[in-house]
């Protein structure tokens, strides 16, 4: 029979590290899915998830049980991903010369007829990943959470630890930054 979460947490806090295993098994898919949105290489993703779990174990005494464990863990995951983004700001200064042929074709299609360029095309997915990689860590986090995961400003404030007005300001700046990148990309390609 599955032991309840609060019982497992209490056991871990009393020194039974093995009771942490069911929590890792249960929540690792969510943590991995989140980490994969911010890192590309599998080794980096595993490092992020490992760091999340080690942090969760070491800071478990700060979990007060007022909100579900999952919320507390996801806050930790998002903040670890943000730290990762800040520490790995590589490739941001590169240009779009490395755009692949399918991506270029998709853009051509979009220029010809915006309605005709399919959103579910693999090329469009590659392009959005490429654009997200070019954003600053703050902008990337906000665009990911607000626009792609469709979370509310309040939710983002809770996840990131930023205030609601700060999330709004960063969202405004992130959209502007994204438009700038897209403008530069299209300028590189079509001018």
């Amino acid at each position: 029979m599955e032991r309840p979460e609060n019982e497992l947490i209490a056991a871990v806090l009393q020194g039974d590290a093995a009771s942490f295993e069911p929590l890792i098994v249960k929540y690792s898919p969510r943590v991995f899915a989140t980490a994969r949105r911010y890192a590309r290489r599998e080794s980096e993703i595993e490092d992020i998830v490992q760091e999340v779990w080690l942090k969760a174990f070491n800071k478990l005494h700060t979990f007060r049980g007022e909100a579900p464990f999952e919320h507390w863990l996801m806050r930790m995951t998002v903040r670890t991903c943000y730290d990762f983004l800040r520490g790995h700001q590589r490739n941001r200064e590169s240009f779009f010369s490395e755009i692949s042929e399918p991506e270029e074709d998709w853009l051509e299609k979009f220029v010809g007829d915006p309605g005709n360029a399919a959103e579910d095309a693999d090329a469009a997915k590659l392009l959005i990943d490429r654009v997200l990689e070019k954003l600053s860590p703050e902008a990337r986090l906000v665009i990911q959470l607000l626009e792609i995961e469709d979370r509310s400003v309040k939710e983002i404030a809770k996840l990131t630890g930023w205030s609601v007005p700060l999330v709004k300001v960063r969202a405004f700046r992130a959209r502007r930054e994204m438009r700038k990148i897209l403008g530069r990309m299209t300028q590189d390609k079509y001018l």
């Binding site: 898919p29 969510r30 991995f32 899915a33 994969r36 949105r37 979009f110 220029v111 915006p114 360029a117 959103e119 579910d120 095309a121 469009a124 997915k125 392009l127 959005i128 654009v131 997200l132 665009i143 626009e147 792609i148 469709d150 959209r175 994204m178 438009r179 897209l182 403008g183 299209t186 079509y190």
Partner: peptide, 21 residues
């Protein structure tokens, strides 16, 4: 090119990506 429209399209493409868990 309409950059705002392109932004919308790409965000929609991002939303369609299934979570890899």
């Amino acid at each position: 090119m309409n950059v705002a429209e392109l932004q919308k399209k790409l965000i929609a493409a991002g939303r369609r990506q299934p979570a890899d868990d």
